[in-house]
């Protein structure tokens, strides 16, 4: 979208957007009705606003076709429903950003696919693990410690580090299952470090699956049934080991799995027979 298109979009809808998004009263009514039709009393209880404030707002919203003409219960019209979902999404996404503003600001979040940024609200319940002066490797150690208790992991790895290989090898030895999406560069380092034979035998066991991705991998993620870890690159293009986002929340874990699947679709599975060609 170029600037002129954006400006004409802005001219077209800014007033309408302001109408619903600037007023506390209207936003709260829309959020509340998103969860089902309500009568005045229910709206009053949920929003802690008085009847006349609510009625006035509802009249205005009815005129703009956001709320269906009144029956006993108020309900959102279809356009109202779409905008209510968008507003709730905006609240969730802006909170997730604000919760860990420093983490997002310090990293190149533009390399996260847009559709995933759009549902970043799923990452609201997470924490940032940062390195400290007395413990420079705290994020890495926390991650490896958590990893050591897992049996099934899925990773997106745009970077190579030997500690990770040790942990993964241990999981495989103990009968676990590991899926990794990696870049050509990381694949080369992996071959160099583990040797073709060892890698081949791991792949043969089919408990290790590798995918090669030629698209930009701008995130490092690890998913297990119990946690999700996200590491990012700095704006200058170097990977930042000094902080990671960690979550045990089911929404965040789902966000991670979906991101893994997103990259998997853009990758080719590594074929044992073709290892030498890489």
């Amino acid at each position: 979208m170029d600037i002129n298109e954006t400006i004409s979009l802005l001219d077209e809808v800014h007033e309408d957007l302001k109408f619903i998004a600037i007023s506390n009263v209207r936003i709260k009514i829309m959020i509340s009705l998103n969860f089902g039709p309500k009568n005045l009393k229910m709206l009053r209880n949920e929003t802690n606003m008085n009847s006349s404030t609510i009625s006035h707002a509802i009249n205005q919203m009815e005129k703009r076709n956001l709320i269906n003409p009144r029956t006993e219960f108020y309900s959102l019209s279809s356009p109202g429903k779409i905008m209510a979902l968008k507003l709730i999404n905006t609240i969730m996404v802006f909170s997730a950003l604000k919760n860990h503003q420093k983490f997002w600001m310090e990293h190149d979040i533009c390399r996260i696919p847009e559709q995933f940024l759009r549902c970043m609200g799923m990452l609201n319940e997470s924490s940032v693990i940062e390195s400290t002066n007395s413990n420079l490797t705290k994020p890495l150690n926390t991650y490896l410690e958590l990893l050591s208790q897992e049996r099934t992991i899925k990773c997106v790895s745009p970077i190579f580090f030997s500690h990770h290989i040790e942990s993964v090898t241990k999981i495989l030895k103990e009968g676990g299952k590991v899926d990794i999406i990696l870049t050509r560069e990381v694949m080369e380092s992996l071959l160099e470090n583990t040797g073709e034979e060892k890698l081949e035998s791991c792949l043969k066991s089919s408990r290790l699956n590798l995918w090669l991705c030629d698209d930009d991998l701008g995130v490092a993620i690890t998913n297990t049934p119990r946690f999700f870890v996200l590491g990012l690159f700095s704006v200058d293009g170097t990977y930042d080991f000094s902080s990671v986002l960690l979550s045990h929340n089911s929404d965040a874990i789902r966000w991670g799995y979906e991101l893994f699947e997103y990259y998997k679709k853009r990758s080719k599975k590594v074929d044992i027979k073709k290892l030498t060609f890489i």
Binding site: M1, T6, L9, L10, E12, V13, H14, D16, L17, A21, P79, I82, M83, K86, T90, V93, F94, L117, R118
Partner: peptide, 12 residues
């Protein structure tokens, strides 16, 4: 994010 919000508003 706001541009996306505006696009949805335009679609409705």
């Amino acid at each position: 994010h706001v541009l996306d919000l505006m696009k949805s508003m335009a679609v409705t």
